[in-house]
Amino acid sequence: MPITVSMTVNGKAVTGEIEPRTLLVQFIRENLKLTGTHVGCDTSQCGACVVHIDGTSVKSCTTLAVQVDGADVHTIESLADGDTLHPMQEAFRENHGLQCGFCTPGMVMSAVDLVKENPDPSEQEIREWLEGNLCRCTGYHNIVKSIKAGAAAMRG
């Protein structure tokens, strides 16, 4: 039996008729066609699916869409301000914090939440925060550098 969910995604009110078992990431990718949120593992280790729900980073692959009925959801697509990249996005781009780019949206979304909680994270704090975000390309080296730079830019 399909049920109705309503939420705000990237500042826009959306409603969907969905199977109750629909995951948030499926709702985002398949119903809303926002494909910047990725699925890498299905089991919440890789973090490619991280979105913000009411301002906090959450793995959308292990969240049911019905769980966030009424919530304020932001995906990677809403992070830039018009044509201006978010400082964290700019930091990843400038510091070569990506190779294939598949983990990048989740990394950026996690990093933005980290800096909200901890405006000046140390290398170790960044590494520990990222334990739920896998990258297989970079060895994390340039990702750590990017987040340090992004945090500095966000502090202004």
Binding site: K33, T75, I76, E77, L85, Q89, R93, H96, L98, G101
Partner: peptide
């Protein structure tokens, strides 16, 4: 030189289309 990659913006904004992104 350490130039900015041409596909950087696409990949930090989620605009890049990977294998599962086509419909």
């Amino acid at each position: 030189k350490r130039t900015i990659r041409p596909d950087g913006a696409d990949k930090v904004t989620g605009r890049a289309t990977f294998g599962a992104d086509f419909n």
